[in-house]
């Protein structure tokens, strides 16, 4: 068994070292220190250099994707093959780093989450310390957050271990599992569903208030919505369609007036096309904005 495992161990290189090896940890700590030194160095950056520094990092990150898009991609690349020339060396490297680059956004956003939590804590701790009239609710918030973190991690560690598989079966559950289940399934999931379904009430009151035959536009909106609504009521469209079929008596033209057909026609002809029309504009907007951000053409907070 042991020799087999060794045979499997992937080759190391400058960038990758074996799991738990001292080389890995040394390099890791050096990298971290270098990074922190650079960060401290930034504190002394002259004011004039600030904008270019930010622009530089933005440009480099965007350049990866642009390069990946424009650089000639290798044709018929099979796993394990080596590049034939410099152009291919670059394109192989670009393709292989894809998996690494893709996760950067997630990881950085993850690190920034601490700021969000800090904002939450700050607001609620201030409320509590000042004895604000809603201080009780702030305590509730912090307590439920603490409980969820505790039970969440405790359950996660339990499942990592040997007993992990057994925990699929409720009979083997301990206090931690019941606690997590109560908070997650019993409360969080149910509240998610409850808040989502509140929309049904709002949709009714909004439609009741706003769908009036006031202007041409409102009337068009209203009639299209009503037709689609009717078509969704299986019983209504069933009866309607049966009647149309009876009248049509096989005449294909009249058959088109089946409710399901009409609703389908509205969707295919107008809904899809208007969405498409809007999306072309939105897509161009995003692309143009992307360009401005990537090249740092826009002043931050330029709405002012």
């Amino acid at each position: 068994m042991i020799p087999l495992l060794q045979a499997q161990a992937p080759a190391t290189s400058f960038w990758s070292e074996a799991f738990n090896s001292s080389e890995l940890w040394t390099k890791l700590i050096i990298t971290l220190i270098v990074g922190l030194v650079v960060m401290v160095g930034l504190l002394y950056a002259p004011i004039r250099a600030r904008k270019p520094i930010v622009a530089f990092f933005t440009f480099i990150s965007g350049a990866y994707w642009v390069l990946l898009y424009l650089w000639p991609k290798p044709i018929d690349r099979q796993p394990g093959e080596m590049p034939l020339n410099t152009v291919e060396t670059v394109s192989f490297w670009l393709a292989d780093s894809n998996n690494v680059v893709v996760s950067f956004t997630q990881i950085l956003t993850g690190f920034l989450l601490g700021l969000g939590i800090f904002s939450l804590l700050k607001i609620h701790l201030t409320k509590i310390s000042k004895g604000h009239k809603d201080a009780f609710f702030s305590i509730v918030l912090l307590a439920s957050m603490g409980l969820m973190i505790w039970f969440g991690y405790a359950d996660w560690f339990d499942r990592l271990g040997e007993r992990g598989a057994m925990l699929d079966n409720r009979d083997n559950w301990g206090f931690t599992q019941y606690g997590r289940d109560f908070l997650f399934e019993g409360l969080l999931q149910q509240m998610d569903a409850a808040m989502f379904s509140v929309i049904a009430f709002y949709i009714l009151s909004a439609a009741y208030r706003a769908f009036r035959v006031r202007s041409v536009e409102a009337t068009i909106l209203l009639s299209a919505a009503l037709l689609v609504l009717l078509s969704l009521m299986g019983a209504v469209s069933f009866v309607w369609d049966e009647n149309v079929k009876a009248i049509a008596n096989g005449n294909p033209f009249i058959l088109n007036f089946q409710l399901t057909e009409v609703a389908q026609w509205i969707r295919n002809t107008f809904q899809t096309s208007s969405i498409r029309g809007i999306q072309f504009g939105v897509g161009l907007g995003a692309l143009a904005m992307g360009l401005r951000l990537w090249l740092s053409l826009e002043k931050p907070g330029s709405g002012s």
Partner: peptide
């Protein structure tokens, strides 16, 4: 059906 009918009636 009842919910959708209600919506139509309210409109």
């Amino acid at each position: 059906h009842y919910a959708l009918a209600l919506m139509i009636i309210m409109i």
